[in-house]
Simulated scan of single mutants.
Amino acid sequence: MMYGVVNTNCEATIRLVVGNENAQRRVIDAVIDTGYTGFLSLPRETIIALNLPWTGVERGTLGDGSEATFEVYAATVIWDGEYQSIPVNETETDPLVGMSLLYAGTYKSKAPCF
């Protein structure tokens, strides 16, 4: 079982261990975003620090209805005690956990929620 907290901004957050294929890891606190259908978003500086491999680009729709292009990287997270390989979107925001990671962690499926 995983536990989170509500931060001072009234956001539900969860602590994750994120790493690369060389076992380099970092502990992050991420906001759970029910409007985000991806797995995990990280700021560029975290992606660089972990030397995450680039896998491509994808388009996504933001909360205001506009579309954006995101660089996508490969990462490993420790989710409920198990390692999972997931795609990570590069963003200019604080880390976000999306519904696909919550779904994959619950149902052991890599199927995204979109």
Rank of each mutant, 00 (worst) to 15 (best):
M1I: 13
M1V: 12
G4P: 05
V5Y: 13
T8Y: 13
I14K: 02
R15I: 12
R15S: 13
N20W: 01
R25N: 11
R25Y: 06
R26F: 01
V27H: 11
V31Y: 05
D33S: 07
D33N: 12
G35Q: 05
G35K: 06
T37R: 15
G38V: 05
G38Y: 02
S41L: 10
P43F: 03
R44I: 04
T46W: 02
I47A: 01
I47Q: 00
I47V: 09
I48A: 15
L50C: 04
L52P: 00
P53M: 05
W54R: 12
G56R: 07
L62E: 11
S66G: 03
E67W: 07
T69I: 15
T69G: 03
T69H: 00
E71A: 13
Y73G: 00
A74D: 15
A75H: 01
T76P: 03
T76H: 14
I78M: 14
I78E: 15
Q84D: 09
S85T: 11
I86F: 02
P87D: 09
P87L: 11
N89V: 02
N89R: 15
E90D: 01
E92A: 11
T93Q: 12
D94P: 06
D94T: 14
P95R: 06
P95K: 07
V97P: 01
S100K: 06
Y103F: 14
A104C: 07
Y107T: 10
Y107Q: 12
K108H: 14
S109A: 10
S109F: 01
K110N: 13
K110G: 12
